[in-house]
Design a protein around this nucleic acid. Structure first.
Length: 375
DNA sequence: CCCCCCCC
């Protein structure tokens, strides 16, 4: 082993002796015994992106598509679920992705097979600091670092300052963590209480924010719901360290604010423009916002739901240049008919479209819908 | 981890 000791001495900051020796032995085997240990050690160092002067870590901003093998130290911002696939030769493969960042930027990491398994094994989690060795490739969404058999993922104690940049709402995808975003507060829900699995009471509430790229629902849990009483529609709101999840309710991606997340008022100015859909473009199965004027008014009706509770509904019609649609206004919204006349300008924001009475398309204005009269 | 899409 003396041949490899000399090489290892320059890499000792980046990899344990044990792991290095293991990789050297694997390399010798891979080469069918055609190279000696020292050569194998040099190849392993090369695979790991560690050159022999021992200067190891590359900054993310410097990683380019032709960087070859690289070694970087970065913080995990997001962990994406593993996918399994079948290769052309019939064997199974696994692939997983991370988003990591250092003080110079962020980059996507693609993990293959055993390395992808590290995600499921809980070895890789959001906010961890990792040392990563892999090879750079131009991926689907830009330059990424691939970590396969010859690569390495290790925990590191090194302190990493992450470039703290906020994202636009349209960039937020399922699975993202450490999300910082600024938006205009559009809507605040009531706080609901519910029973947790362990029998204790939980609290949950929602706000909706928008920026110039879209809008997104934010879910606040437990103590974080207290913050909602301090916020008002129109406020500029900053989210720090949220995480994105697709809800299992209507498959929309939302920002979750857990223990480590923050929501607060900020003085930044935020542009938001509601995106209204022409009435003739509405198809069932999605939420829409429309703007037009009242062209029909119904009565408030009370009814009993299957579970015995009483609810009320009123129906109105709204017209724009392209068409006319029925809008069912549920619960408190039903009372608005008393404030409406024919031709009253109105905006119905975030109402669900479905096929209703007589198979006509109608909008359902429930408790996630905002209705603005005389906007 | 929780939730309207219900009426005639």
């Amino acid at each position: 082993m003396s041949g490899i000791d000399e090489i290892y001495s320059k890499l000792s900051k980046s990899i344990s002796k044990e792991e290095f020796v293991e990789k050297v032995n694997e390399k010798v085997e891979q080469m069918g015994g055609l190279c000696d240990e020292k050569t194998a050690a040099m190849l392993v160092a090369h695979d790991l992106g560690l050159n022999e002067t021992g200067s190891s870590s590359q900054k993310i901003v410097d990683i380019k598509s032709d960087s070859g093998n690289v070694n970087l130290i970065a913080k995990v911002l997001s962990v994406f679920p593993i996918r399994e696939f079948t290769r052309g030769d019939g064997t199974f493969g696994k692939v997983g992705n991370l988003l990591v960042a250092d003080e110079t930027g962020s980059i996507r990491i693609t993990l293959w097979d055993d390395k992808a398994d590290l995600i499921n094994q809980g070895f890789i989690e959001i906010s961890q600091n990792l040392q990563i060795s892999g090879y750079v490739k131009e991926g689907y969404s830009g330059v990424e670092v691939n970590v396969g058999n010859n690569g390495m993922i290790a925990h590191t104690d090194e302190d990493i300052q992450v470039k703290n940049s906020s994202v636009k709402i349209s960039e937020i995808k399922d699975g993202m963590g450490n999300i910082n975003v600024i938006g205009r507060l559009l809507d605040i829900s009531d706080t609901r209480t519910f029973n947790k699995k362990d029998g204790s009471k939980g609290r949950v509430g929602n706000i909706t924010i928008g920026d110039d790229t879209g809008k997104i629902r934010i879910t606040l849990w437990d103590d974080k719901t207290d913050k909602m009483t301090e916020l008002h529609p129109g406020d500029a709101v900053e989210v720090i360290n949220g995480y994105a999840r697709e809800n299992n309710f209507n498959q929309q991606v939302e920002i979750q604010i857990g223990n480590h997340g923050i929501v607060k008022k900020t003085e930044t100015s935020v542009k938001y423009q509601e995106n209204f859909t022409p009435i003739s473009d509405i198809v069932p199965g999605e939420s829409y916002s429309i703007q037009g004027s009242v062209s029909g008014l119904g009565e408030i009706r009370e009814f009993n739901r299957d579970d015995g509770t009483v609810n009320m509904v009123s129906n109105i019609y709204v017209s724009d240049d392209t068409g006319r649609i029925r809008v069912a206004m549920w619960a408190d919204h039903a009372l608005l008919v008393d404030e409406l006349d024919i031709d009253t300008p109105i905006q119905i924001i975030d109402a669900y479209a479905k096929s209703g009475f007589n198979e006509d398309i109608e909008l359902s204005a429930g408790n996630r819908t905002r209705i603005i009269i005389n906007p």
